[in-house]
Design a protein around this nucleic acid. Structure first.
Lengths: 257, 257
DNA sequence: ATGTGTGAAACGCTTCACAGCA
DNA sequence: TGCTGTGAAGCGTTTCACACAT
């Protein structure tokens, strides 16, 4: 997870558990693929495999939306696509602004997955005057001065922050003051926001660090197993790890007092 | 959260709960900032605020690492930085490859947060022959043909996939066959990987959809409250939402059979 | 016969509240 | 006195297993 909500007690939103909400987009994507192949129905087993979850979880998830399946048959693909889209609020148009048009901001602006899901990039905003007017993803970058005007005129309630860490808090405050109530934050900072504003964060470095933790554990296991003369499948990883560490790889950089 | 592990039962890894592991990078970042300001110690309360969690959770998290605090005083910043770094495996060097050097891949290549955390971009790989040799983030892009050689020569165990969805599964298979055991996947697909391989996914579109769900709920609440003549704080959002929807905003695009 | 829908059990995570150490 | 460390309670999520509809 690269991610997490802020505020609001972990109580259910509209009766649907948060964990289920987080999986709905996954189901939707799998269903859309089936729909494009004109598959009329799916079983929970098939759909679960396509979405990368187990079928019991999927059935439980769908049970929160209502009884949309047919026993002995499965789920109607088109109908489910509609129901989930509706539940997620994707049947309406969501204008979003992207603030910070560096490498990442540009990547986001060019990302096709937004438009196809009801999201419309209403504006690209950057603090650098030299960027103003430059076309990115076929759209002129606008200066931060215009931020409030853009948000109010377009009824924007979702903002994406792709600025450097140092600018993120201030940007979020301006977004919120102008009316934004949901923020997707790519800057590596914890945003301080008032009650009622949702923040989700995506942090590339954090994801890698979590992988490193598990990777390290694998290497440790492999080393231990190798030492016990029980060569495991992950042998290669252990060897690579050993090579990387070097002779003093484990010496602490800082010693406790 | 934008994210999730694959395989391996949700049992604890090395005694540390998965939820705790996911927060360690957050604490580390906050601690690093304190360290740079030469702050010698922090209380759980202060550090929790900086990391955006509550203090009970933080103390519980740290208790899994050992008793590194001093009662009545707090935690030694430098010592904690070292212990968490060590726990996460960041005291060693992790070479990573980035596959798919489009907008997003380039953004990742340029992202500074990697190098400072023990991650080293060993190679940038792209399938487009026209990209080969082009410098991105001061590093020449290499062709996919070289993938296996690069991974083996550099002892790479972590791969980042930033290709289009259609290429991701095949890329992951080649990465894994060559020795990669952890993958950070930015492509909007569910990767099918063998036991023992960790996958974390970051999906921009999914994060936005989760925000949209909550945003929709807020708008609904605000409308209801407004109808009940109890003007709420989020009034603006409701009005904006109403504007967006238009006269037939709620008519289903697909009707059930 | 097949596959959904769902109570109930199991599990993991969070929060509480306070004992215990500096 | 102040703040950590931690059992125990509380919650939300996952998994099980089977009744029930088709």
């Amino acid at each position: 997870m690269a991610t997490g909500r802020t505020h609001r007690p972990a109580t259910r939103s509209r009766g649907i558990p948060e964990a289920t909400v987080a999986r709905l987009p996954l189901y939707l994507r799998a269903l859309t693929a089936l729909s494009e192949r004109s598959v009329p129905t799916v079983s929970s087993e098939e759909l679960a495999a396509a979405a990368g979850v187990n079928s019991a979880k999927l059935r439980k998830d769908f049970s929160y939306l209502g009884s949309y399946g047919t026993r002995g048959v499965g789920y109607d693909v088109e109908y489910l696509v509609y129901q989930i889209s509706r539940e997620l609020g994707l049947t309406q148009d969501w204008p979003v602004v992207i603030v910070g048009i560096g490498n990442l901001g540009a990547a986001l602006a060019n990302y096709g997955g937004f438009a196809s899901r009801g999201f419309r990039v209403a504006a690209l905003i950057d603090a650098d005057p030299a960027m103003a007017g430059k076309p990115v993803a076929g759209m002129p970058v606008q200066h931060t001065d215009e931020l409030e005007k853009i948000i109010e005129e377009n009824g924007v309630s979702i903002g994406v922050i792709a600025t450097p860490a140092g600018a993120a808090q201030q940007v979020s405050e301006r977004l919120i003051a102008a009316g934004v109530t949901s923020i997707l934050n790519f800057a590596p900072t914890v945003l301080q926001v008032p009650e009622g504003v949702d923040v989700r964060k995506v942090d590339l470095s954090i994801e890698l660090q979590i992988l490193a933790f598990h990777e390290q554990r694998k290497a440790g296991d492999a080393e231990a197993a190798a030492a016990a003369l029980l060569p495991p499948a992950a042998r290669r990883a252990a060897e690579a790890a050993a090579n990387r560490k070097g002779p003093d790889g484990d010496v602490p950089a800082v010693m406790p007092a």
